[in-house]
Simulated scan of single mutants.
Amino acid sequence: MKAEELDALFDSGEDISEHLDLTTTKRIGTQPKKVNVDFPEWIVNALDIEAKKIGVTRQSIIKVWIAERLKAEQTHKAS
């Protein structure tokens, strides 16, 4: 199918998913990127305690807390 034909189907509101190969799709900006951060020992210990309370790894709780804070900052700036 030519691009123009696919565009016409899309523009007319038809479902074009059967014409797409979704097995190779990737969300932009979601690929992991490794960073190294040095924390004082008391922070690492506190993170471990909190992570254990909710049954996740230290890395998971760091990711969730940072994501929550960034979302809050973006919401605050938007208002």
Rank of each mutant, 00 (worst) to 15 (best):
Asp38Gln: 13
Met1Glu: 01
Ile62Val: 15
Glu50Cys: 03
Ser17His: 09
Leu6Phe: 13
Lys26Tyr: 08
Asn45Leu: 15
Leu6Gly: 02
Glu68Arg: 13
Ala46Met: 11
Lys34Arg: 15
Ile54Met: 06
Ser79Leu: 14
Glu50Gly: 03
Gly13Glu: 00
Asp15Ile: 02
Asp15Gln: 02
Glu14Tyr: 04
Gly55Gln: 05
Lys53Met: 05
Val44Gly: 01
Asp11Trp: 00
Ile62Thr: 08
Lys77Phe: 09
Lys2Gly: 06
Lys77Pro: 00
Glu50Val: 05
Glu4Val: 07
Lys71Ser: 04
Pro32Asn: 05
Glu68Ile: 06
Ile66Asp: 01
Thr25Met: 13
Val37Gly: 01
Glu5Val: 10
Arg69Ala: 12
Lys71Ala: 09
Thr57Cys: 08
Arg69Thr: 04
Gln59Ile: 04
Phe10Gly: 01
Gly29Pro: 04
Leu6Glu: 03
Thr25Glu: 06
Ser79Gln: 14
Ile49Leu: 10
Ile61Glu: 01
Leu6Asp: 01
Asn36Ser: 14
His19Val: 00
Glu14Leu: 03
Ala72Gly: 00
Glu73Pro: 01
Val56Ile: 11
Glu5Trp: 03
Asp38Phe: 14
Lys34Val: 11
Arg27Val: 15
Leu20Ile: 15
Ala78Gln: 13
Glu18Pro: 03
Ile66Lys: 06
Phe10Val: 08
Asp11His: 02
Thr30Ser: 08
Lys71Ile: 05
Gly55Thr: 07
